[in-house]
Amino acid sequence: MNDIPLIYNTNGALSRSGNTDGSYKDNNLDDEIMGMLPEGLVQRISYNAGYIYNDNWKDYYKSHSVYLNKGWEYITDLKEEKEFEFTCAHETGHEILQAYGGTVFYWQHKGNSYYFPQNTKPVDKESLVEEYIYLDYMEENSGENIPTGEVDIMKYYDDNIKAKSKPLLLKKMF
């Protein structure tokens, strides 16, 4: 497994975690392209604490504090520690998925997200943009809601993860 840079990020824009440079090559051209990017550009695990700005704040519910504060939120170390544990497990899990099912399987989160961009697939019918613009090599899979029992940390679930599901998901895990 390749090393994954750890980023401590505070008082600025949200630093998104990602792991696109798997160790196992399956002759997918994207493996080669991602392998040429500088270390830490896409492949990293970020610890976001302090005042963090979310540039996608308009996607939150209008009653959510991030929306009300126009993207800014204060994230305590206690809150971020749980998020960081989840993120480390998820990003490390990409290596296992790639070894087991190949690049498409791990990039598409077992089929629950699009290949590019990696947005969560809807449970219901796709919009025209999703159907005709998004790249999807696993069209037979659709999105899923967060299950009531055991949660698969490698899947993206079709709820507004930024506003309501992520806390629910973390609560189920810890």
Rank of each mutant, 00 (worst) to 15 (best):
residue 67 Y to P: 09
residue 109 H to P: 01
residue 89 A to R: 05
residue 97 L to P: 09
residue 140 E to W: 13
residue 66 V to E: 07
residue 131 E to M: 14
residue 112 N to H: 05
residue 85 E to N: 13
residue 94 H to F: 04
residue 81 E to Q: 15
residue 106 Y to K: 05
residue 123 V to S: 13
residue 119 N to Q: 10
residue 69 N to F: 08
residue 149 G to S: 03
residue 83 E to K: 08
residue 133 I to W: 15
residue 110 K to Q: 02
residue 137 Y to S: 00
residue 86 F to V: 02
residue 146 I to K: 01
residue 70 K to T: 10
residue 88 C to D: 02
residue 75 I to C: 00
residue 113 S to K: 06
residue 72 W to T: 01
residue 134 Y to A: 06
residue 129 V to E: 14
residue 98 Q to R: 10
residue 148 T to H: 07
residue 85 E to F: 11
residue 125 K to H: 15
residue 108 Q to E: 09
residue 98 Q to W: 07
residue 139 E to F: 09
residue 133 I to Y: 15
residue 137 Y to Q: 01
residue 91 E to D: 03
residue 92 T to F: 09
residue 81 E to P: 13
residue 118 Q to L: 12
residue 80 E to Y: 04
residue 143 G to W: 07
residue 118 Q to W: 06
residue 126 E to Y: 15
residue 121 K to T: 11
residue 66 V to C: 04
residue 97 L to H: 05
residue 119 N to Y: 12
residue 130 E to T: 13
residue 92 T to C: 07
residue 128 L to D: 11
residue 148 T to K: 10
residue 95 E to M: 02
residue 73 E to T: 02
residue 120 T to K: 07
residue 135 L to E: 10
residue 119 N to A: 11
residue 118 Q to H: 09
residue 71 G to S: 09
residue 119 N to D: 12
residue 142 S to W: 09
residue 66 V to M: 03
residue 67 Y to S: 06
residue 108 Q to T: 04
residue 103 T to E: 13
residue 70 K to H: 10
residue 148 T to E: 09
residue 86 F to A: 00
residue 75 I to S: 00
residue 69 N to S: 13
residue 97 L to C: 09
residue 88 C to R: 05
residue 101 G to L: 03
residue 68 L to R: 15
residue 126 E to V: 11
residue 110 K to C: 03
residue 148 T to C: 05
residue 116 F to L: 12
residue 77 D to I: 14
residue 136 D to F: 01
residue 148 T to P: 10
residue 70 K to W: 08
residue 98 Q to F: 08
residue 85 E to T: 14
residue 133 I to E: 14
residue 116 F to T: 11
residue 112 N to Y: 07
residue 77 D to R: 14
residue 126 E to P: 13
residue 68 L to S: 09
residue 68 L to N: 12
residue 146 I to E: 01
residue 105 F to Y: 06
residue 135 L to M: 14
residue 141 N to L: 02
residue 133 I to F: 15
residue 111 G to A: 07
residue 99 A to G: 10
residue 141 N to R: 02
residue 138 M to K: 06
residue 106 Y to W: 03
residue 65 S to A: 06
residue 142 S to L: 11
residue 139 E to N: 13
residue 70 K to F: 11
residue 132 Y to D: 02
residue 96 I to W: 08
residue 130 E to V: 13
residue 132 Y to F: 07
residue 95 E to I: 04
residue 134 Y to K: 09
residue 128 L to I: 15
residue 104 V to R: 01
residue 112 N to Q: 08
residue 93 G to V: 02
residue 128 L to E: 12
residue 80 E to H: 01
residue 110 K to W: 01
residue 74 Y to I: 00
residue 124 D to H: 15
residue 79 K to A: 09
residue 64 H to N: 13
residue 72 W to M: 07
residue 118 Q to I: 12
residue 134 Y to T: 06
residue 77 D to F: 15
residue 138 M to Q: 10
